[in-house]
Design a binder for these strands. Structure first.
Lengths: 292, 292
DNA sequence: AATAACTATCGATTATTGTGATATGTTGAG
DNA sequence: CTCAACATATCACAATAATCGATAGTTATT
């Protein structure tokens, strides 16, 4: 039965143009390649090259086999890379849990960098509510977390402050608040506010709650649709709001001049003790610059 | 360097549970497997199995390698299947050009059947206008075609009638025609009609043209948006109209009792002479039942 | 016709893989 | 604990497969 070496001969011959050239490239003698290709042809029962010309030319059938050969060899390369990665102690998997309103543009840049630096390590992103992130890390289901600062985080969790996220207030264009200017805190009270919270009903953004009546959503996209339908106003991260405003879904509310924009502190979370491996450590360091 | 056989040993050992069982399954002796796995471990510099127990148990690193091994072997199986397919004379590729209003549900069934019967043959569907299909087949860029009957098809093309497609007339709910009942042919004349035609400006559905004023679209989806915006009425295949009506985009026009629904004949097209191979022949036969 | 560069084939050689025997380790039942 | 049943590791040797080196023949170019 044929070998990986035979498949390499096929690919190299096509790339180098002749059996001799392939042999030179692979550090073998010409007859070895000639016989190797011949035995591959016997095994597959397919004529791979036409030998009527001086240099062998790939047949249509050969081209079809070549596709598979290339693909198999690419995977063998991946396997070798993975073996080296294992040898360097790189993890098979890094799992990051992040608040679903924190999928910042910088995060995708970090992910791109990761895939170049650790091509064989799988990256898993769990988009959940801040409150659930602590549990995921404590139970070992996530290696790192990005969440709004909470004071009641467990002692088993390492917290690392990485910056503030600016929040702005938005409502739909039809909402009564949209027509008002110089809105003060007390103006907000009569109108329903949309807040997001986790599965366990603990509100993270509690201190941002002003209105007496509130509706809750479990993720930022639901908040968007609620707000755009005029079901209430909400505080959301400025970088989300900008998109929504551009798309025409919502408008930014005009707060009074003495109103300072709210900021929420963001923590990078990890289990206490050594991080899992070099890939996790790399992501940890990169995430410190998530907010700028 | 390691071999496909080594990777098979890894996979079989995991599946069978022990080196001995793997050896029995692979028709080898136990020591061959023991040595094979050992040499794979040396080549990759990864400990694949833990030997502290009676039966070797896969390590975490081993599990990571196993994924790759499985994937490589699956592709080798695909290569073997492709080699057999080549040997049976099956084509690498079957290209079907069809009028973009003829993507019938039955077509996806046929495609499913195809992928089971010819797993290594690639199926390409070109969705174009009827008028362009003849050219695609004549120039060898498509192997089969499905089109509305045209009388001026070339002599180089085999035409095979496969049935009629019922057409109904639709307009938007706000259109004046929507409020009318018992619409006769002459009632249609003052209103703009939306027709579809190919790139070369030849109208296929010419004999369905009633209104003096017409707008043209090059595919059925454009027709949909034109009609739903009230820019005109149109004749479209009933199975498309049903969806649009359900979605609320358009309404069916109420024609007078003596008005027979229009039918358009559908042809299966192929180049004259032998078809390319068994896969093309199979699709050809299946497409005969496209309309029922 | 001469040349350069290529491929196919074959016997000899070398490398790899498999075999069989044996020593040793693990598991679970009595 | 001891034993039977079943595993694995290792080794010398046999079998198989790959490679080498040499040679003859082919294809394009000058």
């Amino acid at each position: 039965m044929y070998n990986l070496e035979h498949l390499r001969m096929l690919v190299e011959t096509v790339e180098a143009g002749s059996f001799s050239a392939c042999a030179r490239k692979m550090g073998k003698v010409q007859s070895a390649v000639s016989q190797g290709i011949a035995s591959l042809e016997v095994d597959l029962d397919v004529e791979l090259f036409s030998r009527t010309t001086r240099k062998p030319t790939l047949t249509v059938d050969g081209a079809r086999v070549l596709q598979f050969a290339r693909s198999i060899l690419r995977q063998v390369e991946d396997l070798n890379a993975a073996a080296h990665a294992i040898h360097r102690g790189e993890e098979a998997l890094v799992r990051i849990a992040l608040d679903n309103s924190l999928a910042l543009p910088r995060l995708t840049e970090i992910c791109s960098g990761f895939s170049e630096k650790f091509p064989t390590t799988i990256l898993e992103l769990y988009s959940v509510a801040t409150f659930d992130i602590g549990q995921l890390i404590k139970s070992g289901r996530a290696d790192l977390g990005i969440a709004y600062i909470m004071n009641d985080f467990d002692k088993e969790i390492e917290q690392c402050f990485i910056g503030n996220l600016r929040f702005v207030s938005v409502c739909s264009a039809n909402h009564p608040l949209a027509k008002m200017t110089q809105i003060s805190m007390s103006d907000l009270i009569p109108y329903r506010q949309i807040l997001s919270r986790g599965q366990d009903e603990a509100e993270v953004t509690t201190f941002l709650k002003f209105s007496t009546q509130a509706w809750y959503a479990n993720d930022i996209h639901t908040v968007r649709s609620m707000v755009s339908k005029g079901q209430g106003w909400s505080y959301v991260p400025a970088y989300f709001a900008d998109d929504w405003i551009t798309a025409g879904d919502v408008v930014q509310m005009q707060m009074s001049f003495d109103h300072k924009p709210w900021n929420m502190g963001i923590d990078l979370l990890a289990p206490k003790g050594e991080l899992k491996g070099p890939a996790t450590r790399w992501v940890f360091d990169e995430l410190k610059s998530l907010l700028g």
